[in-house]
Structures are given as structure tokens and as C-alpha cells.
């Protein structure tokens, strides 16, 4: 899932200041899971902004709505009937969602209320951790399901740095040493011999440098 956090309130208020009719738009997918942009958070932000405007005597229309997903056109199109009521949209979607809405309704400013952070998992209730960089060349089978690029602070491919202590990273003691996890996992599978392989420097061209990536599946298209 994609994780995000709400921008500071001052920054949001500065962004929306020029507008008199605002739609606060939530997303029911990833950002709902990380409690940043779901229906609840959208309602909270809209209510807070309305109160702020009332305190300043500003007459601003602020309404809220939440789509199941902001990154899929079939959901975004549902705004077609209502979008003309507003002169700006404050989106609580991830960066992909904000841009998808902006592309469909190109004549209305779509403002980001969130800072999109990383691809990650819900490790525990209220805790989300990064575990994938979206490199485009997954090697998890070689590392027992633990990504050395996303989860090792030094992104080492050929073994631990030797600086870990009690299974924790020397750079950030809150972070479990990825290579400890890799070795433990491969040991459990009886596949420690995989570590004898030498990995060359990561080819990042699958991730960046070639412009925005795309996937096309003709069997999925009309």
C-alpha cells in the first residue's frame, strides 16, 4: 500500500486561501488504511477548515466527499455531476490520486492535502513501515522475502555490514537489521548457499532515469 501523511494545517490553509468553494476529496483505499485520507480523516479536515473559516468570518463553502479510489477513472468520473459547484479540490489522495483527478478535471485546481511517503505494510496497528522501493526488478526470492534495498539502511546486496547490535541497525536502532532477517530466513529454508552468490550493483534503470514508467496489458484493454 501507499502511505501518506497529512500536510501541516498552515500549509493546507495557505493553499486553499484563494478559493471560495472547496471540495475536500477523500480516498477509501491506501490512505484510508494509513489513517491519512479516508472518509473519517476527510470529514475531520473539512470540519476543521470550516471552523477555521468561521472564526475568521470567512464565507467559504467547504464540502466533503470520499471516493473508493482516486487513482481509477471509473471512480473519479463520479465527480462529474458535482465538480462544477466548486472552484478547487483539496485531495486527500496519494500523489497518484491527486494527479488522476487533476487530469480528469483539468480546469479546476486540485490541491494535495497529503505528503505521499512510501510503499509499505501495516506492521502493527498504527504502524506502517517501508518495505518496497518499487525498483522494477524484484529479487525477494534470493533474500528469503526480505528486501535488502528497502529494509537495509545501507542498501547492501552482498551481506551484512557487521555493525548491527542485538539484531538492530547501527544507523537507526529502531530498525531491525535486514541482513539479520535475511540470514535467519534463508537458514530456516536451508538456503544459506544463496548468500555465496555475488550480486552486481543494482540496475536502477528499471526504476528511474527513463521517465514515468508504465505498464500496458493489451489483454486488459478494450
Amino acid at each position: 500500500m501507499i502511505t501518506a501523511e497529512r500536510k501541516p494545517m498552515d500549509e493546507i490553509r495557505a493553499m486553499i486561501a484563494p478559493y471560495k468553494k472547496l471540495l475536500v476529496l477523500g480516498c477509501g483505499s491506501c490512505v484510508a488504511e494509513c489513517a491519512a485520507g479516508g472518509e473519517k480523516e476527510t470529514g475531520m479536515l473539512a470540519s476543521t477548515l470550516r471552523m477555521a473559516n468561521k472564526m475568521e468570518g470567512k464565507e467559504v463553502l467547504i464540502q466533503e466527499k470520499t471516493l473508493d479510489r482516486q487513482c481509477v477513472k471509473d471512480f473519479v468520473i463520479l465527480l462529474d455531476d458535482v465538480i462544477d459547484r466548486y472552484d478547487a479540490v483539496l485531495s486527500l489522495g496519494c500523489g497518484a490520486g491527486v494527479q488522476a483527478v487533476a487530469e480528469m478535471f483539468s480546469e479546476i485546481p486540485v490541491l494535495p492535502a497529503l505528503n505521499t511517503e512510501f510503499l509499505g505494510e501495516t506492521r502493527d496497528q498504527g504502524l506502517w513501515v517501508e518495505n518496497c522501493l518499487g525498483c522494477g526488478d524484484c529479487m525477494l526470492d534470493d533474500f528469503g522475502g526480505v528486501c535488502p534495498l528497502a529494509r537495509c539502511s545501507k542498501q547492501l546486496l552482498n551481506g551484512p555490514c557487521g555493525g548491527s547490535k542485538d539484531g538492530k541497525c547501527e544507523i537507526n536502532p529502531e530498525v531491525p537489521c535486514a541482513w539479520q532477517a535475511i540470514i535467519d530466513r534463508l537458514d530456516r529454508f536451508g538456503s544459506l548457499d544463496r548468500l555465496e552468490r555475488i550480486y552486481p550493483p543494482k540496475d536502477w534503470s528499471r526504476k528511474q532515469g527513463g521517465g514515468p514508467r508504465r505498464i500496458r496489458r493489451e489483454d486488459q484493454q478494450r
Binding site: 473519517k40 470529514g43 475531520m44 470540519s47 476543521t48 470550516r50 471552523m51 468561521k54
Partner: peptide, 11 residues
């Protein structure tokens, strides 16, 4: 209780 309940009341 949800924070939204408190916020809506204050609003």
C-alpha cells in the same frame, strides 16, 4: 468515540 464526533459538535 471518533474525533469527528467532537469536531462536529464544536463546529
Amino acid at each position: 468515540l471518533d474525533p469527528l464526533h467532537l469536531l462536529k459538535a464544536l463546529e
